[in-house]
Nucleic acid binder design. Structure first.
Lengths: 196, 196, 196, 196
DNA sequence: GATGAATGAGTTTTCATTCAT
DNA sequence: AATGAATGAAAACTCATTCAT
């Protein structure tokens, strides 16, 4: 297993980065939150950026794994897509901190953001491949599976993020209870027309 | 009409903020890009934050206006929703800089971000009201119009953002040509099931 | 004339760099000594290194000018060499701080030191050209004017440095009084054999 | 005999200190170069400073021994002085790393430098005593043997240093071949007038 | 209205040193 | 004897903001 202190630092870093964003996050704060000296972080990570990138990669890895596991149980593309949405939203609900970071830091021209987008691109490819299979097997019908993948990703992600922040502003914490609502909405968007 | 210098500063600020994000953007750089002295910015704006907030508010205003104008021409909610998506995507395509800022700075706990989210909330209300009318007039059918509004907003925004950055990485600039692809995709998502 | 603050910073920097050497010198200390804020130094100089290099260049420039002026008054190479030694030693005596920096920072593989050595090389060329002329005019006789230039430079410089530090340890300050002693010694080394 | 590890550390330390100077040299780098753990250095030396001082003392010791051995074979002061110059220059040529350190770290107000200068003072006394004997025995003639000792030390040292760095910049390594040139030059400076 | 030199609080990062194993 | 993870004090540098001109 990974070095104990590294784990502690990772935990603390997610909290702090999610709370403040990359630039506003202070290494001091991360160190304090982790209960280690600032030097200790630098003993394990070359820089703030490297720490952040490590974090993001791990986060995307977890999301991918989680979604892949959900898909693996299903046979037909439409069931797989359903499972994908379900897993994606639940993952974001359970890992709100990561979700915040994901959208906050996904876009931008900094190197770390570019690197990060590569990971997102991979995740989008996963979605796209499900769509593609559906098309090939005659289940789905769409002209632009790549754009559709982005749109679905955006819908599923922003629903959760918006909910997180709106609940935060009302200081309620019962987000898990609202998961079905969000899943249902995105499922409808994808599988049924809004129009009667 | 607004003071000439203010306009110049606004223009420059959008560029710089979009390129670097709020924190990494330097007032020096904005001043240089605007061709004014740094002090001049502070003569017109109290702070970096105020400049940014002014910018974002104006941006959201423009987006709202643009969408509202699109809707106004239509009668039925479904036509209105169609027009809304169309206008939203075209606006983001035409104002890529603003689009970047929008998603980059929409989430976070800083005061400026909270303020900004208020504007987004208003925009989401606009979408929601179209959905609501559709329900009332028996055109639409959905359990959670609020969540649906978020999902639609996310789908339409992320499609464009993802496209912008993916084109940037390939150094092509022909994003306007791809607008129909994106509009079509989101329209399908909203109006037709993916499933045959 | 040069900007007032720049001048003040230069003055302070010579003091501090000479006292502590490049690495041990703190920008804080220089700022305090100059009576300006640390930021002011960085407003005028890009980095500690740039400040230092500027300083050294100016120092070598002054030394060169001073020696050149001494030489200019003389006709024959031997008179010129005499004047050169005289001027060099007096300059070091008057500008002890600079003399310290000169020897302390002349050697090393850092970029700033390499740059600095280029200036010293130029100064050595000046000495060498006097020697060369002496040879051509039949006044001097030597096999390796380049090495001789280094040797003379070393003799004249180290004599003064050693004296500065030995006086410092005895807390006496009367170095100017000892200048003739040093000049005489180096003159003898160059013009008369030690051997009777 | 000295502990094996101590020897290894010394070797590595000379390299690293000579390459980077005292301040820029990193204990990590020395440890790596020596192939031991950082803690091991601290097991054998109390501090970076102590390691450095030990090094310098040993270096000066070796120089002194080498020169003393050269002198011991000669009888007359002028032969002794000749041998001294010869030994000094050859020692610097053979121990370039040490030579660099010697001049780089000889001057300055830090405690380690003061300590080091004590050793140099002793070496200068050795030179001075040869001069003094020459005067007493009627071979030499000079007003200020102490200053003359400094001047000779400076000439002999700087000649080599300047050559080392100028060859380094041209990436040639044949310094040993140039030793006679340098010895000859300093010998002339000391024993024969430049003037015909 | 406009300017840009000056400021100093705030941040990342480095590295000698320690100490439990 | 030897190790190397952990530490925290120290330093270079940044940049939003101010203000005299």
């Amino acid at each position: 297993m990974r070095h104990e202190k590294v784990e502690v630092i990772f935990q603390a870093a997610v909290e702090v980065f999610a709370e403040s964003g990359f630039d506003q996050a202070k290494m001091d704060e991360i160190a304090q939150a982790a209960g280690v000296a600032k030097g200790t972080i630098y003993y394990h990570f070359k820089s703030k950026e490297e720490l952040f990138v490590g974090l993001m990669n791990e986060g995307m890895e977890k999301l991918s794994d989680c979604v892949r596991r959900g898909i693996a149980l299903k046979k037909s593309p439409s069931e797989q897509l359903e499972a994908l949405l379900h897993a994606h939203i639940l993952f974001f609900v359970k890992n709100g901190k990561l979700a915040k970071l994901l959208l906050n830091e996904a876009f931008g021209t900094k190197e770390r953001q570019r690197q990060f987008r590569t990971k997102i691109r991979e995740y989008l490819n996963l979605i796209e491949s499900v769509l593609q299979q559906g098309i090939e097997q005659g289940e789905f019908q769409m002209a632009h599976p790549r754009e559709m993948a982005s749109a679905i990703f955006g819908a599923a992600s922003v629903v959760v993020l918006q909910k997180i922040y709106s609940l935060e502003e009302n200081q309620s914490e019962e987000i898990e209870a609202t998961a079905p609502t969000m899943i249902e909405s995105v499922q409808q968007l994808v599988f049924h027309p809004l129009i009667k």
